[in-house]
Computed example of a mutant assay.
Amino acid sequence: MTRLWLVLICLGLVVLALAGMWLGWRNRERRQADLPELPAPPADLGARRLDALDGEYVGTAYATSWQDRVVHGGLGMRSGASIALHEAGVLLERDGAAPLFLPAAAITGARLAPGLANKVVGIGGLLVISWRLGDAQLDTGFRADDKSSYPQWVRTIETTKGART
């Protein structure tokens, strides 16, 4: 009988933890409801500036806090992805989610970072692209399977950031 009570208590604690995580995610969505809709990719992205990279979309966070994950519009879910830099901007095609398009005019910079949105991978492990969505300054992280082209990505974005198409 004691074993049954211990199992029920453990199951109750797991249910409470899951309910707390669900409520936290829902409250985060509610706090971010004032963010504008995500930009849709244009029909013509223009010429590709760099070869696409395959890897993982790590997430998007507010630029003021690398751990403050943005969940608005599906930005909060990690997934496999492919990233490509075009004249019109950056296109992240995510597995199981809508593509994420960062218009060239909204991009404010790029850098390498050890972590973002509660994912820490080590020095220079993430390509982080900074951009504006309305009044919010955001950072979007991508972890490529092949990190050797990170410096070229950062240089290209830094020299063309904020370009109007």
Rank of each mutant, 00 (worst) to 15 (best):
K161V: 15
L35Q: 01
A17M: 13
T140S: 15
L85E: 01
L8T: 12
A47W: 02
T60P: 01
G20F: 05
A163K: 10
G55Y: 06
S79P: 06
R164I: 12
L85V: 02
P42W: 01
E93H: 05
G96S: 07
A17I: 06
S149H: 08
G12F: 04
R69F: 01
M77Q: 09
S148L: 11
V71M: 00
G76K: 07
P99H: 10
I83R: 03
C10L: 12
R111N: 04
R48A: 11
L133Q: 05
R26V: 10
P36W: 12
Y62F: 15
L91G: 06
T156W: 00
S149L: 15
Q67F: 15
G109I: 00
R111P: 05
E37H: 07
A52G: 13
R69E: 04
G59Q: 10
A84S: 10
T60M: 12
R132H: 14
A19P: 08
T159V: 14
P151Y: 00
G122M: 07
T156P: 01
P103Y: 01
I107A: 06
Q137I: 05
L75G: 08
L35G: 02
L16G: 13
G59Y: 09
G89I: 04
R94Y: 13
L11H: 01
M77K: 08
Q32W: 01
W153G: 00
W153A: 03
L127Q: 04
T165C: 10
V71L: 09
P151N: 03
G141C: 10
G73Y: 14
L6A: 09
L50Q: 06
G74V: 10
R164K: 12
R48C: 01
W153K: 00
